[in-house]
Nucleic acid binder design. Structure first.
Lengths: 219, 219
DNA sequence: GTCTATATGTTGATAGAC
DNA sequence: GTCTATCAACATATAGAC
């Protein structure tokens, strides 16, 4: 196991919150509970439609307790968003940095990115769709992380074009399309539906290879 | 020109609102102005973060004037959403029903759908991302329209598989991926950016053809 | 650290003059 | 049909007891 243990929820049906990086990032147990409550509420109804009473109630506390651990409702969103975006950069960075052909690196990157969005679709929804509720300073910080994700993926595509593995007329547009396809999973994914995160990862890896004109789309 | 003139905003810099189907659907001029003001406000800040005062102010009216034309804030959202979804079904239906090979019909459908999302990214954002704010009855009505859009596109893919033009291992998943790619445009599209709706339509048509394994991706 | 109670402002929607 | 004025409910956040 690597030194930087930063797993998301384990695959067991009852998540062990002590292994959840987001919860761990909160520092205290109560703060972590509030963070998870905020994720659930923001994902279900959106940041602005969520009340601090709702978050507190989901965490089994009074509305006032929230303000012992967080200064504002927006600070909760910022911590969720910052953690999620750092995760995304790490996932893409790790998957694309490992060896292999450009096609293998693209397939690994897309698979990992898709699986994260499907397995953690609730927090992914908050991470990807509640950005505009962040205050300007926090928004700028998050946008920098998002640019890094795009750069990582674009480099893989560039490498594939350079080796002749890929045929990509519009590098910037195709990179964004692949990212876009993965991100949109957070909007529609339903864990009760027929798609497992693993199957979706495989499908999307194949689709991404086709999008870049990979010579052998067998992966 | 076809009998069912139902154009969105014309390409001229100063939109002639009398030719705008959404505005026309409001019946009265003031109601149309309120509808456009609501689109702008909902797209910028989201339904729940938008106040009726904000909508009224954008339309140059008092908060009370809104309630002469609409019973609730949600009714504004419903009219915007219903109009947009009917448009989407029509765009996909028209593009896919016209003759030609499955590849030509897919390319036409994706091009038209992408162009609508890019040209009307403001209202598309409301249409695609504020669904959950609808009341249950309205939400169900909209979901039915969304299913029709999916069915239309899936039929094109089925036809392509039947004629041997396409190679699609997962028909349902690939159909949703193509739709997903188009829809996500509403999230990120920036008219000040480098992508014209036309160029984006061409790029995405090519990407869709690759995704379905079209034999000749020249379109 | 958590609670109950509350200050202070804003919201969606309405009443009634014109 | 539009306005000014306003209601009742609810929002975020704080004060002070324990």
């Amino acid at each position: 196991m690597p030194a930087h243990v930063d797993g998301e929820q384990p695959p067991s049906p009852e998540p062990d919150s002590s292994r959840d990086g987001l919860v761990a990032s909160a520092g205290h147990e109560t703060a972590g509970r509030l963070l998870l409550a905020a994720v659930a509420a923001f994902a279900e109804r959106g940041f602005h439609a969520t009340t601090t009473r709702d978050i507190a109630a989901r965490a089994g506390m009074s509305p006032a307790a929230l303000y012992i651990h967080y200064r504002t409702k927006e600070e909760l969103l910022h911590q969720i968003s910052a953690y999620g975006h750092r995760r995304a950069v790490r996932i893409l960075g790790d998957a694309s940095a490992a060896g292999g052909t450009a096609a293998q690196r693209l397939a690994r990157s897309v698979t990992a990115f898709v699986r994260w969005h499907a397995e953690h679709h609730t927090r992914a929804r908050v991470v990807q769709y509640e950005l505009t509720a962040l205050e300007p300073g926090h928004y700028a910080e998050i946008q920098a992380l998002r640019r890094r994700s795009g750069e990582i993926l674009r480099t893989v595509l560039e490498d594939g074009v350079a080796t002749g593995e890929f045929t990509v007329p519009d590098l910037r547009g195709t990179t964004r399309a692949v990212l876009s396809l993965c991100i949109d999973i957070a909007r529609w994914y339903d864990p009760a539906g027929p798609d497992s995160p693993e199957a979706l990862g495989e499908l999307y890896a194949q689709l991404a290879l086709r999008m870049v004109g990979a010579r052998d789309s067998a992966g």
